[in-house]
């Protein structure tokens, strides 16, 4: 990783450090050319890269159903959605590049397993309804996480998130619409939809990360206005959103502890299986190896193409220099 100069909290940086802290306190945006602490830069690179990786790994479970989509309309919608995710990957890698790191480096870190992507994509899409459940639950959880990021202190990330959130909310609606249609379809379609919600509900709750008491990165991110709400606050917000939506769908959420709590003004809900979460995070989920191998294969198979593009660009430059001379 190439750092743009030293930016530690050493005494010689004291005025910059103070200015940075004042701007954070005033809820101002930090821009790429501004001084920032090393830690702030590292935290952002880690988070934006993980987010970008999640977008491009997330293309796989849904891409899995493009060639089998059961109507041409759904096929068009799904291709457009997967294309949006590639586009989100592009915005996010570009946002990370403003912090002085190249996309190639970040992809290498992903391929070497040294940077993460959202663990949810290590679950398989085994039925068409999973395309709907990913849209409704996974994109729904992602939006809950991401809307506050539109106000993140780092300008390029915040601006990328504004556009991404608009498209994500469209994705969530298509997922809901897909499940709504299945839930009102044949008995087999209804079963397919319920089975899918049964499998994706708990993993989607895990997307907000471990409980606040065990979250490792939260405190600093909150202080820097990168993160605005805690994992548990966001998880609660998500559950409050999906319970009435599940009722509208006519599908059941597989959580016996789900109940309205009038005193709190929120739904109570059960505890996800955090052991399962840790296992999948460690690489033992159903698709961890498959997802990363797919990425590595696509990257390796594309190497000669990227090399050819570079060679052609170099030759073209040389030719135009010769012509100009």
């Amino acid at each position: 990783m190439t750092d743009r100069g030293t930016a530690t909290a050493a005494p010689e940086n004291a005025p910059e450090q103070r200015r940075f802290e004042e701007r954070i306190a005033a809820d101002e945006r930090i821009e790429p050319r501004d001084w920032m602490p090393d830690d702030y830069r590292r935290t952002l690179i880690r988070q934006i890269a993980q987010h970008a990786h999640s977008e491009i790994i997330g293309m796989q479970p849904e891409g899995n159903w493009i060639t089998r989509a059961p109507s041409l309309r759904r096929k068009a919608v799904l291709i457009a959605k997967v294309q949006d995710e590639a586009g989100h990957g592009l915005y996010l890698y570009s946002a990370a590049e403003t912090l002085g790191v190249a996309r190639e480096e970040l992809l290498d870190l992903l391929h070497q397993g040294r940077q993460r992507y959202s663990s949810i994509f290590n679950y398989p899409t085994v039925s068409w309804a999973d395309v709907g459940a990913i849209g409704w639950l996974v994109d729904g959880a992602a939006i809950t996480n991401q809307v506050p990021l539109c106000r993140c202190s780092y300008g390029p990330y915040a601006r990328a998130m504004v556009r991404i959130c608009k498209e994500e909310s469209f994705h969530q609606r298509q997922g809901f619409d897909l499940l709504y249609t299945l839930a009102r379809g044949t008995e087999a379609q209804r079963r397919m939809a319920q089975d899918s919600v049964d499998r994706w509900y708990w993993p989607s709750l895990m997307m907000f990360g471990p409980p606040d008491s065990e979250s490792t990165h939260s405190e600093k991110s909150m202080a820097w206005n990168i993160k605005r709400f805690s994992n548990d606050e966001l998880r609660q917000r998500f559950v409050d959103m999906i319970v009435p939506q599940a009722e509208a769908l006519g599908l059941t959420l597989p959580d016996p502890d789900l109940a309205w709590n009038a005193e709190r003004g929120h739904y109570d809900f059960g505890t996800p299986d955090w052991d399962e979460f840790m296992q999948v995070l460690k690489g033992n989920g159903p698709c961890n190896k498959q997802r990363i191998e797919h990425r590595r294969d696509a990257h390796r198979e594309g190497a000669w193409v990227r090399e050819a593009a570079r060679a052609h660009a170099a030759k073209s430059r040389a030719r135009s220099r010769t012509a100009a001379a």
Binding site: I56, R73, A76, V82, L90, G302
Partner: peptide, 29 residues
């Protein structure tokens, strides 16, 4: 073209191939 989703040699091509697939599907419909 749609078979190539998430298999492009670089991210820009994932976007371009999907976009072309989408145009052609629109024509087909």
């Amino acid at each position: 073209l749609a078979e190539l989703a998430a298999r492009g040699p670089q991210l820009e091509e994932d976007v371009a191939l999907a976009n072309t697939a989408l145009d052609l599907l629109g024509q087909a419909r």
